[in-house]
């Protein structure tokens, strides 16, 4: 998978990190430019830099980080960010299915139908779940493992195949196939000397119950093997339980998992109420002063009016009828 060289080379796939909410995968091609609100970045400037370098834009307006892809970064860089939830699921699945270097794994629905199904909305959401699970498994099983990946949608299968090739994922064997109807065409060939069966199956399908009997055939028979069916809806889970139970699977458990962020770095410093009490007292004093000033002013006004009236009277009296 992906380059392990210290520095970025021509043709490498890198993750361009702008902010934690904004990162994009980029294939480095000399002569091309990346344009975004952080500035203009020439691919040729990036070639030869160590992975992890902070790169200023040509205009000097902003900067980005050039990161080495990981399945997690790759997933976060895809357009549909809700997928971040899915990362916790993937980690848990890989761990609980005991997927290790050299493991042989079957997955159906690599272009995960998760969000799709969740939204009850079957137009393809560009990039949704684009091989997040495949990338994560490929990383873990390494070059000695095998991932048999089945996608029933021809166009998506083609797209995935391209992507896996671009990412150097030689351990992935992708097939365009509707496993619910046609099965996996893998079986435990103990006597043939070469077994392409698997000890781990992961189904991310709208109707996993249809694929369960086929999965059983494709699983190794000489050991305990594990299956995981991923479903967003309760009804799917219950129906899958029935299918698994009928096929002789045991130790059925269901898990939910997620990663909960804890961002506590913006805790404000709070003012003591004693300070407020003193402020209110001061305010009270100021207000009383204002009131007293107003009273004094109004007294002055009244007095001056009185005086004025008095004076007017006095003048009137003094002057008497005007002689003019």
């Amino acid at each position: 998978m992906w380059s392990t060289a210290r520095t970025v080379g021509e043709g490498d796939v890198v993750i361009v990190w702008m902010t934690r909410e904004n990162m994009v995968p980029l294939r480095i091609t000399a002569g091309q430019e990346l344009n975004n609100k952080f500035g203009v970045f020439k691919h040729s400037d990036i070639i030869g830099l160590p992975y992890g370098t902070k790169v200023p834009s040509h205009s000097g307006r902003g900067f980005v980080y050039i990161l080495r892809p990981t399945p997690e970064l790759w997933t976060l860089s895809l357009p549909h960010r809700t997928q971040i939830l899915y990362l916790a699921d993937i980690a848990f699945i890989v761990n609980s299915l005991d997927i290790r270097p050299g493991s042989s794994v079957i997955e159906a629905g690599p272009y995960a139908r998760f969000l799709d199904q969740l939204l009850g909305y079957t137009f393809p959401l560009a990039g949704t779940g684009s091989g997040s699970f495949s990338h994560s498994v490929a990383r873990t099983i390494g070059n000695t493992g095998h991932l048999y990946s089945f996608e029933f949608h021809q166009e998506r299968a083609a797209k995935a195949r391209d992507e896996f090739a671009r990412h150097g994922m030689t351990m992935v064997h992708l097939e365009h196939r509707n496993v619910c109807q046609q099965g996996f065409a893998l079986c435990d060939a103990v006597d043939s000397g070469r077994s392409s069966s698997s000890s781990v199956v992961f189904l991310d399908l709208p109707a996993p119950w249809d694929a369960v009997p086929h999965a059983k055939i494709a699983m190794k028979k000489d050991r305990a093997t594990r299956i995981c069916c991923f479903s967003p809806c309760m009804e799917q889970v219950l129906r899958t339980v029935t299918a698994l139970n009928q096929c002789g699977f045991t130790d059925l458990t269901m898990y939910e998992t997620l990663l909960r962020p804890h961002d506590v770095h913006h805790v404000p410093k709070l003012v003591s109420i004693d300070t407020i009490i003193e402020q209110v007292k001061l305010h009270e004093i100021k207000k009383e002063q204002r009131r007293l000033e107003q009273v004094a002013a109004s007294d002055r006004k009244r007095n001056s009016r009185k005086r004025k009236r008095q004076e007017d009277n006095d003048i009137a009296e003094e002057d008497g009828p005007d002689p003019d």
Partner: peptide
């Protein structure tokens, strides 16, 4: 919006025995 301990301390003398004190914050460290 003010520091809760100063408020609690200020008003505790007027609470009945067995009275409940309930403080909300959006921040756990507070």
């Amino acid at each position: 919006q003010y520091e809760p301990f100063s408020i609690v301390q200020c008003l505790t003398p007027y609470l009945a025995g067995s009275a409940s004190i309930t403080v909300y914050s959006q921040y756990l460290p507070i």
